[in-house]
Each structure stands twice: as C-alpha cells, then as structure tokens.
Amino acid sequence: MSGKSLDNRRVQKFHWMSRFLSGWAIFRQSFLGKIGLTLLALFALMALCSFIPPLVDPMYQPMAGVDPEISTVTGPSTRHWLGTDFMGRDLLSQLLAGARVAFMVGVSAAFMSVFLGTAIGMIAGYMGKFADTLLMRLADIIMVMPALVVLLMLAALFGQLSIWFIVFFIALFRWPGVSRVIRAQTLSLKHRPFIEAARVAGASHLRIIFRHITPNVLPLSFLYMTFQVTSAIIIEAALAFLGFGDPRTISWGMMLQWVWKTGHMFNAPYWLLPPGICISLITLSFYMLGRAMDEVLDPRLRKEGQTD
C-alpha cells in the first residue's frame, strides 16, 4: 500500500515536471514573456544592488545619508549619478532601495492575497451552500471597493500606516478575484471520479482538499499571483505618492511625492523621471509575464485564427 502511494507520488512529480517543461517551451515562444522576464531580472538586480551604495559611503544611505557638501537639489554628477534630492540625499541609492521595496510589497501582498483567495475559493467551492453564498457575497462587496480609497480612510482613522499593514490590507482587498476562479475550478473538480473515489474510500474533507484539490488548482493560483503583484505595487506607490506611505521605508511612490510636494517637478527631470519610469516598467513587466503565462495555461489564446 505504502509502496503504491510512493509510486503515485513519483508519477505525480514526473507529471509536474513534464508539465512545467512543456509550459516553458510555450512560454519561450512568447515575445512578451521574454521581455517581461528580462526586465524583471534587471529590477531584481537593482534590488540586489541596493545594498552596495551604503557600504561604499554612509552618505549613500537612501533615507538618512546626507552629502556633507550638498544640502539641496543637484543634477547628475560623478559623485551622485542621478543627482540629489532636496536634502542632498543620493537619488540613485533611493531608486535602488525602491526596487527592493517594490518587490517586497508586490510579492508579499500577492502571495498573501493568492493564499487567501485560494483557501477561500476552495472552501466556498468545496463546502457549497451557505458558506459558498456568504463568502462569494463578501467577495462581491470587496471587489467593488476601491482599495486606495479605503486605505486612505484607514489612514484617517489610524494615522500613519506601517508598510506591513499596507501590504496586509492590499492582500485583503485583492483575494476576491482569485477566489472566484479557484472556486469555479474546485466546483469542476469536486465531481470528478478521483475525488468521488477518495470520498468513498473514507478520506476526510481536509484530506480531500489538501491532497486532491490543492495540487490541481495551484497552477492557476500562480498565474493570478503575477497579476496581483502588479496591482499591489501600484496601490502602495499611489498611497506613498499621496503622502500616506510608511515614512520609514523609501519607495518610488515616495520619491515622486517628494519631487511633487517640494515643487521641483519642473526643474529636476532627473528626479521626476526615474521613479515613474521604474514603477511603470515593473508593472508592465509583471503584466507581460502574466499574459505570457496565460497563454501557457489557456490553449485557446495560443494561436489565434488557427482552425483545424
């Protein structure tokens, strides 16, 4: 019996591997996917490099470091490749640190919302009846609520929000989209023969959910993660831009807030352009990655107009 289940597991692993490889083969044909992945690699490199400048000289600390000789906005120079901000802080190290924060916010919020969405979607789909109705109504309500506006209201009530609170709240707002898809997938799985077989064999609900349904909905969850990353980064950046970001973390949105609020947007393009381009490009690359993965998972999108 145990030998058999081990066998099964091996078969399943092999199956996953071959699925991944064939998916990768399709993905590599996608032009958008390749660009997206390349750009993301560059941003990851930026995030990794963000640790270097403060090591070179303490004045390159993105938040606290101030050039002893400069206390105002200056253009690019050999000392500050992108120039300095209104307090004489180095813009390049701020930009690099922003990449780190963007990844952190994006990936953790996306992970949480996908985790929540998958769990809730599976529960709603598997349990059905009352739980299903209640959870999906809740999802409907949350789905129409504009996350940024609600976060602003929370800032009005609770004052300064910490970065983890923001991440957590973005996740709370983004799960409904995921859970709808996962619920539909769970519903279609629920009546497949292998689930019925497991139930007849006396498997518990939890076992059925974790052992049989989860592996089958996970690929879909991962696809949704890339789209979630995009919206999480945008919401955090927008909040920081409006001045309600975490004052202890530097993000691209906050850099834009400073250039806007200190009135330097008309005379310091070296300050205005890089953070905006970075936010736009990182969202674009996650978006392109998501579309390419969509093509991998949805054969209908693959070759448009090919009949027979």
Binding site: L32, A237, F241, L256, I279
Partner: peptide, 15 residues
C-alpha cells in the same frame, strides 16, 4: 495599449 495601461497614473499626470 499595454504601455499606457501600465503607466503609473500620478506620474503620467505630472508629466
């Protein structure tokens, strides 16, 4: 469409 759709809105407004 892809590019304008993913541009960061407040930044676009400033530009």
């Amino acid at each position: 469409a892809l590019v304008t759709h993913t541009v960061f809105l407040p930044w676009l407004a400033l530009i």
